[in-house]
């Protein structure tokens, strides 16, 4: 009988040891993992581009229509975008901003867009490079984008009244989307013919199509290369009754 009691006591104590031991062990392991995470130093490599010498030209890279269509599909999808440093072959920030300014200058000086946009004093100019490829685990070691053509620079030229946003393909440097909004009465798009804008934009890309375009007062679109890609231009009126927004972009029609 006495032996039974001793055994019962030993068993009870051992059970308590197992129960609390399990709890403490779990806590201890979690704490160790926590400390390990806290002390870990991660690094991500990238290929830093030296400053571009003024006047130095970039090697122009062109994409096929199919490639353009695929990239546009990804850009307009819900895929998460991440900032990143420029990959090999991509535009630097300076090149992207210069490309944006050059393009805008050209379109304004040739009366495709209101000259008043150029005359606006942009208080803010910023550019962000986005990657639309899925991100692997962070920190990741050298992981150049599977395709650098899928990144884009978003260049924004902003002041109190006018905002210009351009999406530039990071590999080719072409402007694939433009969004201009104005709350200024002096800068409006009432006299801008969307069809003219489309034609000029068409020329910018060197596209040609015999397809019949869709044309309305504030909307125009046309497809190219057997309906693989298209150009869409539209303008919207603001509260003032003037057309305060214009948007034109390359689109994937496939």
């Amino acid at each position: 009988m006495f032996k039974q009691r001793i055994l019962a006591t030993v068993v009870a104590l051992f059970s308590l040891f197992i129960v609390f031991g399990g709890w403490f062990l779990t806590n201890e392991l979690l704490d160790r993992q926590h400390v390990k995470l806290m002390n870990k130093v991660n690094s991500i490599d990238f290929n830093e581009k030296l400053d571009v010498e003024p006047g130095a030209g970039r090697t122009k890279t062109s994409l096929s229509t199919k490639e353009i269509a695929n990239i546009l599909k990804v850009w307009t999808s819900d895929r998460i975008r991440h900032y990143h440093e420029p990959y090999e072959g991509q535009l630097t920030m300076e090149e992207a901003i210069n490309a944006a300014n050059s393009w805008l200058s050209y379109f304004c000086k040739n009366d495709i867009l209101p000259k008043e946009i150029l005359e606006s004093d942009f208080t803010q100019t910023n550019a962000f490079l986005y990657d639309t490829n899925p991100v692997s685990q962070v920190p990741a070691m050298i992981t150049p984008a599977p395709d650098p053509a899928y990144s884009f620079w978003s260049v924004n030229l902003i002041n109190r009244e006018v905002s210009v946003q351009l999406m530039i393909n990071a590999l080719t440097g072409e402007i694939w989307m433009v969004d201009i909004s104005s709350s200024s009465l002096e800068v409006n798009f009432d006299n801008i013919k969307v069809w003219d804008v489309l034609e000029q934009y068409e020329k910018y890309f060197g596209l040609f199509s015999s397809d019949e375009p869709k044309r309305e007062e504030a909307y125009a679109s046309k497809s190219y290369e057997n309906n693989q890609i298209g150009i869409t231009v539209y303008k919207k009126a603001g509260e003032s009754g003037h057309y305060g927004t214009i948007h034109f972009s390359l689109t994937s029609t496939h």
């Binding site: 979690l30 995470l37 991440h82 900032y83 901003i97 910023n126 962000f128 991100v135 962070v138």
Partner: peptide
């Protein structure tokens, strides 16, 4: 916990890059 840390680290990286781009643009 690891997944949360990874996500937060990615968020921090994005924030760093955002500020860097802002600075560089300016």
């Amino acid at each position: 916990y690891k997944n949360a840390v990874v996500q937060e680290t990615q968020r921090a990286m994005d924030q760093y890059q955002f500020i860097k781009f802002l600075i560089q643009s300016d």
